[in-house]
Design a protein around this nucleic acid. Structure first.
Lengths: 340, 340
DNA sequence: TTGAAAGCGGTACCAC
DNA sequence: GTGGTACCGCTTTCAA
């Protein structure tokens, strides 16, 4: 016995398909008695409307697809949570398509991919130009989040300025600088976020005639951090120094490993991270803060604007970094010097 | 100007719609010249096939929907990556629907939800009975992952036994036990994972007439951990003790905070976690290991079996815990005692 | 090798 | 208030 269709329901209830459709969609102008008959028929047959058919007919899915480079970090959890609520309030559903594994870029290039069966597309933390060779296989409102590209609506974070801010703050501390760089996985598309931060840092330092006494590049894995810590412990400058870490997560991981090597935060070294994560805050880590929630909300608003068609011009909102100073960038020695 | 349809292409190329369809689907028996004409027309019009219409016509979407309680942890990243590859190899696409925010359960109850527009459904780390009040609004192959329920295919982890294993190992250490319990967010549906682990731990301990000297319950947030650490530092037993932590993440976070309170791992306390995460391994944390990758792969295989219809009986695979012993459960004192 | 036409499951116009 | 029917874009017999 096959899945019953709307027509089966109509036949069973002795009414036309129009009437069944009206009942399903809660239209007015249906007598209570017919409505009851239809509902009875629906229950008897165990009828469930076919979402796909409805979408097809209406030409819209009420869905937004988000293309993500990964999941598994609190950053995306926060960002997407902030994004989701406003969308939901307007009746849109959100589906996530992370780039799981490595060679999956291909998946996004296929125009028949499930992700493109949506009313709007959100490209997160990725450069559309290198995601697709040419034009995207999606023809509908498209918004970039945590990324920027001329020709697309975008909500982004000024990572270059963030790098500058971090570097300037680091310079102010007047300590030798160790740079803990984040490397991209060899098969993943290079993260524009890292590129911009790195540029901001390096350019600012060199403008002041300073170069890091040591630069360590670490893959987004756990093992790399231990090696990095050992390297830093071995090659560190004689006195206290400041570590500039590409992300909070790297900073916190490194801190743990340095501890194992006998180096103590605030005594032997200072530490500055990026992102302003909750974990960083809880750990007393100074960080260049990114307004993650606000960015998610802004993206939702741009998306909704584009969906309702009243976005005449390109919207490109860029959020600015702020620096949150905490214990990790204050030397114990200095605390005694300045008891004020 | 509207989006061109297959019919427009046919007209432009001076052929029938059948031919265009055949070219698109790479059917044989098409002359090279007509194929060329069709392809030219497609490019001139910038035609992109309508995925939704095709799905509608075929009655299948080649999609699998995964319902997740959250994202943002490496656990799901690993699990889903392992799951994704085999599915992709069979031509299936994977869409993620995390329960973002709090009151989103409602979303999953709506039969017209986007998630149910798929060929198969994967319910991850959630009890279908409490996810849906009654029967699920989805009529197709459904598989539970990291969860178990009679009447569903499932791939799960024996969390109760994991709890038992942890408790037995802890008892062997013959130290007072502090239990760092994980609390569920007040609005989230209670995690069956925690329930089972907790039961395994508590039952095993009490069977041996032991109760934790201290139980601290902590929400999945950063702030709770600091408080927990303070509480433990204040109320700890006089000598060394062992902390049993509900997850590796909690264990690692706690370790950091305890350090700030002056308590040192392996000297003042031992630490045992759950999950066998990469971060735990890198940090030398002993842990009850869950074979995450294997579980993901197994789920994919069950899913594919169900999709091809050759699953005559219910498949319920349960994976067993193993204990990975590392530095975190060895006292420094003992190292000296047993130099062998 | 190619094309005409039926139809997947809904919705909405228009007539009654 | 209600029903007949065209149609959304595509795939697939069936016949030529």
């Amino acid at each position: 016995m096959n899945k019953p269709s709307l027509r089966d329901v109509a036949r069973r209830a002795g009414v036309g398909t129009t009437t069944v459709s009206r009942v399903l969609n809660k239209h007015p102008n249906i007598s209570d008695t017919t409505r009851a008959r239809v509902i009875a028929a629906i229950e008897q047959l165990g009828y469930v409307p076919d979402v796909g058919a409805r979408h097809f007919r209406l030409g819209r899915t009420h869905a937004v697809s988000a293309l993500l480079p990964m999941i598994g970090t609190p950053f995306y959890e926060t960002l997407l949570t902030a994004l989701h609520s406003p969308l939901e309030a307007e009746g849109y559903d959100l589906a996530l398509f992370p780039l799981l594994g490595s060679q999956r870029v291909r998946r996004f290039r296929d125009a028949s991919a499930l992700a493109y069966r949506a009313d709007a597309l959100l490209i997160v933390s990725q450069d559309p130009a290198q995601l697709y060779g040419g034009p995207p296989p999606f023809h509908g409102p498209t918004v970039l989040l945590d990324a920027h590209h001329p020709g697309y609506h975008s909500v982004s974070f000024d990572n270059h300025r963030a790098g500058r801010l971090a570097a300037e703050y680091a310079l102010d501390r007047r300590l030798p600088i160790v740079f803990l760089d984040g490397a991209d996985a060899p098969d993943a598309p290079g993260s524009p976020v890292f590129v911009a931060r790195r540029a901001g840092i390096v350019q600012t330092l060199s403008r002041h005639g300073i170069r890091p006494v040591l630069t360590v590049s670490v893959l987004p894995e756990q093992e790399g951090l231990r090696t990095a810590a050992q390297q830093i412990a071995a090659q560190r400058p004689p006195g206290p120094f400041l570590i500039l870490s590409m992300t909070d997560d790297l900073a916190l991981g490194l801190r743990q490993h340095l501890q194992d090597s006998g180096l103590r935060l605030s005594e032997d070294y200072l530490l500055l991270g990026f992102d302003g994560s909750a974990a960083a805050a809880a750990a007393g880590l100074s960080s260049v803060v990114q307004p993650v929630r606000a960015m998610g909300e802004a993206a939702a608003s741009v998306l909704l604007g584009a969906l309702s068609g009243d976005l005449s011009t390109l919207v490109q909102r860029q959020f600015l970094p702020t620096l949150r100073e905490d214990r990790s960038t204050v030397l114990h020695a200095d605390r005694h010097l300045n008891p004020a």
